[in-house]
């Protein structure tokens, strides 16, 4: 496994992702500035959280046109892995690498707190070491994480087992009271049709070390660490 973390102007979770990959998983990793037109040879590209371009126009809308995104698209098209977290997920939506769009949170508030997620499928490289139905505690930190897609798209996500994480209670039950932002179908994370591009709003990089008091995100990174 070799990994790359892309840095956009306004990324602020890039170092956290780098730290988990390098110091916790002991995986070779390097930063790539968004102006680069190509990527070094790698298996995994992480698009980290943050506020790329100040979230101007729409979240992720400007970052999508960064030169590096052409290379990220080629990387995804070749079947290798792309992992977008929070703003990274928003960029993948704007770039069309994942379907749907983000709306303002139902409450209109920026929400920064730990939430519980249910693992909906382990049939992805990103979740292969997790247990289906397991409940993970991982923090969210976003103002626009209210996932929206039309009925046909939602049906396709369901039918093809592409919903990877759903917001849930601590016991794993679904309900509007456990959905922090109003996302359609309680969606917290989805994969593309080929299952090599994952976007999720919660931040596993903030929940992967004991010193951070939460470790439920580690299983996702460990699922990825063995890939070559």
């Amino acid at each position: 496994m070799k990994a790359v973390v892309v840095v956009f102007p306004g990324s602020n979770c890039d170092t956290d992702c780098f730290n988990v990959l390098k110091d916790v998983l002991k995986v070779p990793v390097e930063f790539v500035w968004h102006k680069e037109g190509s990527l070094p040879d790698c298996d995994l590209v992480v698009l980290p959280g943050g506020f790329s371009y100040g979230d101007y126009l729409r979240t992720g809308a400007i970052a999508r046109f960064s030169p590096v995104m052409q290379a990220v698209k080629r990387h995804a098209d070749s079947g290798r892995l792309v992992f977008g977290i929070c703003n990274g997920f928003q960029i993948l939506l704007e770039a069309g690498l994942l379907p749907g769009a983000m709306l303002r949170n139902r409450s209109l508030q920026f929400i920064c707190k730990p939430v519980t997620l249910r693992v909906e499928t382990v049939k992805t490289v990103f979740t292969q070491k997790l247990k289906e139905g397991a409940v993970l505690e991982i923090p969210i930190a976003h103002g626009e994480g209210n996932y929206y897609c039309d009925e046909d798209t939602y049906q396709r996500l369901e039918d093809n087992d592409r919903v990877v994480f759903r917001y849930c209670s601590q016991e794993g039950a679904l309900g509007e009271e456990f959905n922090p932002n109003g996302s359609r179908g309680h969606i917290a994370g989805i994969v593309n049709e080929r299952r090599n591009v994952l976007g999720m709003m919660p931040h596993p990089e903030r929940a992967s070390e004991r010193v951070l008091s939460m470790t439920d995100g580690l299983g996702i990174w460990q699922s990825l660490a063995g890939v070559s």
Partner: peptide
Amino acid sequence: RLLINPVI
């Protein structure tokens, strides 16, 4: 291409 997101 940029100003609007046709999904929403």
